[in-house]
Simulated scan of single mutants.
Amino acid sequence: MNKAIVLTGITTTGTPHLGNYVGAIRPAIAASKDANVAPFYFLADYHALIKCQEPEKIRKSSREIAATWLALGLDTSNTVFYRQSDVPEIMELAWMLCCVTAKGLMNRAHAYKSAVAENEQDGEHDPDKGISMGLFSYPILMAADILMFNASKVPVGKDQIQHIEMARDIAGRFNHIYGEHFVLPEAIIEENGATLAGLDGRKMSKSYNNAIPLFESEKKLRKLINKIKTNSLEPGEPKDPNGCTLFSLYQAFASKAETDEIRRRYAEGISWGEMKQILFEYINNHIAPARERYEALMQAPAHIEEELQEGARKARAISVPFIKTLREAVGISRISL
């Protein structure tokens, strides 16, 4: 049986937080143990250069993200876990794809259009001011990530659907010119995927500065949870769990029975202080074993690198012969043996 290839990229520009864990990492770790799927997970360090020109930040983030996924139990025996920059064939394919991609298609990319609109709103004479070719051609590199391994399924958020559609367009154009080489990828949208609220009630995000780092120390975790905004209802007054950040965080980790019990406590008027203590203890107990493994891995960078290099070997066992085939297809080959 041919396994479905599922590919996910992780941008290396920050420290993983609880929202990342619940929304993306936890389901991906579970998928890594599915014998019917061939998962490809990669650190998208070249993509990170589009938004970040701080080398140390990218290096630190790469290390933290790799350690996080390994500490949480990623099954590397069933998964290809690699760093994008360790597979140079991806960049070569990106150029081949650039040469068949219409500029007009890239003009329609949401990120580019948003940047142009912002410039126009600010009264800039040059609508492209500050826009790099990295931002403009980002969807082409994303297409290369996907098409290099002929991933049939790509889990993405709704804001990334357009990029998968573009990858399909680009693959179709290449196939039309040079023959059938690429599978057309399909976007997999988690309609019921969990989105956590942050300290201020908005979506948890590094850009909002409202995130709770996944492996924060116990002391700092308690302090951050105590900072979560609540309303002014007193102890004993019934409280509505819907829309409550404390409840949504608890629900993301607890079982249905545990969640129902807390819902009952809300109706009885649980105090915010008690709820924050319950939430801290529950999350801390949940992540403590993985936090211990994470801290050990952060002290053993050689082991992290070994895992990434093993993933790169698996990836290049596919990419090296495939790029050779693609070179032949486009007419780049030796004149004689």
Rank of each mutant, 00 (worst) to 15 (best):
97 L>S: 02
91 M>C: 01
88 P>L: 12
76 T>E: 15
88 P>I: 05
92 E>F: 02
78 N>A: 09
72 L>C: 13
90 I>P: 07
68 T>F: 06
100 V>Q: 07
90 I>V: 15
97 L>E: 00
77 S>Y: 02
96 M>H: 05
70 L>F: 04
79 T>Q: 07
65 I>T: 08
77 S>K: 13
76 T>P: 01
83 R>N: 14
89 E>I: 00
99 C>K: 08
94 A>V: 00
88 P>D: 04
76 T>G: 03
94 A>D: 10
74 L>V: 03
96 M>Y: 13
102 A>K: 12
80 V>K: 05
71 A>H: 08
92 E>M: 10
98 C>Y: 14
78 N>K: 13
88 P>S: 12
97 L>P: 01
77 S>H: 09
96 M>N: 02
89 E>A: 06
94 A>T: 14
92 E>R: 10
81 F>E: 00
98 C>M: 13
99 C>M: 15
90 I>G: 05
83 R>Y: 03
80 V>S: 14
84 Q>Y: 02
85 S>H: 03
70 L>W: 02
88 P>M: 11
85 S>C: 04
81 F>R: 00
104 G>S: 10
97 L>V: 02
86 D>M: 12
77 S>V: 04
88 P>Y: 06
92 E>P: 03
91 M>R: 01
79 T>L: 09
91 M>G: 04
85 S>Y: 01
102 A>N: 13
86 D>S: 15
67 A>Y: 08
75 D>A: 10
106 M>G: 04
78 N>T: 05
65 I>P: 00
102 A>T: 08
66 A>Y: 11
92 E>C: 03
107 N>H: 12
85 S>N: 06
102 A>C: 06
98 C>I: 03
